[in-house]
């Protein structure tokens, strides 16, 4: 494996919808990418650990997204499902350089 990450350009930060998520498919990888109220961009796996709900369509508040299927609450910073439910989703590092948003993926 090694520590080689590749960075993939997914769009412009100022064009990203605020307080919303967007589905981003890179090859077979499906991401939910959120622009939080703080302006920060976060990327997680676009699949709820409960029953595979599309997290990108959830309601976003602070650092959490609520799955649109059965309302599980998931922290987009660390991917952890909140009590009383349990589980976690993968998170992906994001980099913003000169208005461009990149996701860092394993090679």
């Amino acid at each position: 494996m090694g520590n080689t990450l590749r960075s993939v350009l997914i769009g412009k930060i100022d064009e990203w919808p605020e307080k919303l998520g967007k589905s981003v498919n890179i090859g077979k990888i499906q991401l939910a990418v959120f622009k939080l109220e703080s302006g920060e961009i976060r990327a997680i796996e676009n699949r709820c650990p409960h029953k595979g709900g599309v997290l990108a369509e959830g309601i976003v508040t602070g650092e959490y997204v609520f799955c649109p299927m059965h309302d599980w609450k998931i922290n987009v910073l660390d991917g952890k499902v909140q009590e009383p439910d349990i589980g976690c989703v993968k998170t992906f590092p994001v980099e913003v350089k000169e208005n461009q948003v990149y996701v860092l993926l394993d090679r």
Partner: peptide
Amino acid sequence: KDLYEAVKI
């Protein structure tokens, strides 16, 4: 763009 576009790479 905000709601109905899908980003595919």
